[in-house]
Design a protein around this nucleic acid. Structure first.
Length: 115
DNA sequence: ATCTTGACTTGCC
DNA sequence: CGGCAAGCCAAGA
């Protein structure tokens, strides 16, 4: 799980649900959030957002911080405070998939979802 | 052991 | 994607 999060390249993002799915625990989206909260700065937590492309961190006070960090990585926010998932969502390369042993079925779906 | 809480999602209007 | 109910599951009380 942590491996996956740490593998998200700068400038890209994943949703909580996707991280959970890639970790082979499809219904653990909420737990992903707790883990990020727990590990804090030791992981690129700013690259994990909700499935609307919006930030879920305003609930714990880190909203502004996250937004700034992402903007520094080159992402741009829409007027409503969300980002374009179709454009910034990470598509794991085959190499990474192999390397981390990600479930290919899920990885494939993620790539396909950007229709 | 039971109940509540959430950095969440999905399904159904 | 707006609103809302229902799932989900680990942690804390």
């Amino acid at each position: 799980m942590l491996e996956i999060i740490r593998s998200i390249p700068p400038g890209s993002v994943l949703t909580y649900g996707q991280v959970a799915a890639l970790a082979d625990t499809p219904r653990a989206a909420r737990q992903v959030g707790r883990i990020l909260y727990f590990y804090g700065e030791s992981v690129p937590w700013q690259r994990v957002i909700n499935h609307y492309g919006g930030l879920s961190t305003y609930k714990v006070g880190s909203g502004e911080r996250q937004r700034v960090l992402l903007e520094e990585e080159g992402l741009s926010f829409r007027a409503d405070g969300t980002i374009d998932l179709k454009r910034y969502q990470w598509r794991p390369s085959l190499k990474i998939i192999k390397k981390l042993g990600l479930p290919e079925e899920i990885a494939f779906q993620i790539n396909l979802k950007l229709t």
